[in-house]
Amino acid sequence: MSLSNLLPLVRNETMKVWKKKRFFVVILVLLVLIPVFTYAQMKVALNNRDKFDDWRLQLQQKITDYQNQLSSERIPEEWKQYRRIAVQQLQYYLDHDVNPDSPNAVTFSRGFVEASITMFIPLLVLAVASDLVSGERSTGTIKMLLTRPVRRWKILLSKLIALTLYVSLTLLATVVLSYLIAGIFFGYGGWTLPVFTGFVIHGSEVDSSAVHAVPQWLYLFMVTGLTWLSAMTIACLALMVSVLVRSTAASIVTMMAAIIAGSILTNMASSWHTAKYIFSVNLELTNYLAGSPPPIEGMSLLFSVCVLAIWAVAAIIVSFSVFTKQDMLN
């Protein structure tokens, strides 16, 4: 099959999502939320500036706080491990005279994308993905769509391509809007600021032999790329649920339940090892870049990317095999 066959179909699907104004909702949500977070961030920055003249003092204070917590007996061992790792990383920044929280638009964008990867970005993806198929079934337009001389797999493929396009656009809009809005308050600099990556964690020890500095623009690019991978996994799964479930509401609830369950498990299931094969526990890919300890021992960037890829491919296989065979009874 040639591309020219598929192109008009992709155009149709893209046009429908656009005309349904789903993407406008995404933009609107971003336009409301980003200023809120920017304001909160600005408050923190002002507060710090009042207390510390020099960011180095602030960082030193933070390290001392963490070290004090480590000697306390009331703090659970698990937390202490996080603190130990954080102390070593902050020390690394201090030793190299780099401010990890320098307030600027690029740092804000980076932080916003990192913070959005587990819940907020998936939610925006669901706004577009959840009714791609179920919406056509509940309104009955699927009967017109599937009785045209086009094979069903082509129709689903065109929907998947349009979805990929919108996921990419959503991420682009998130980065661009957060940069533009945060820039008003923090200035538009920060592109070349060095960010350290490559911390390797062995138990509670940080191996910094592989650590290297990358300019923040590259780091932002990597963060966005990883977020795209995890957003696409959500998109594929949402497409599958949308094929399997007839109602759009049920399709959104199913996906949200899975994502929220994953984020709860991430916070509590470090001793249940099998949980690391659940897709929603693996969404936070950007953590590996920053060198945060994984939610469950034995997880790594490669592991999480593989788990997500397997879930995504399985979802696509299920979607296509069900959609091409399914009886459209209503």
């Binding site: 155009r11 149709n12 005309k19 309104t139 337009t141 009967k143 045209r148 001389p149 086009v150």
Partner: peptide
């Protein structure tokens, strides 16, 4: 050419856009 049960078209598109949509499929 067919209409199965009710003629359900995309309500958020205009009549012309609907026709364009289905014209692109053939």
């Amino acid at each position: 050419g067919c209409i199965v049960e009710n003629p359900e078209m995309y309500s958020y598109l205009t009549g012309w856009e609907n026709l364009e949509h289905f014209a692109r499929m053939q």
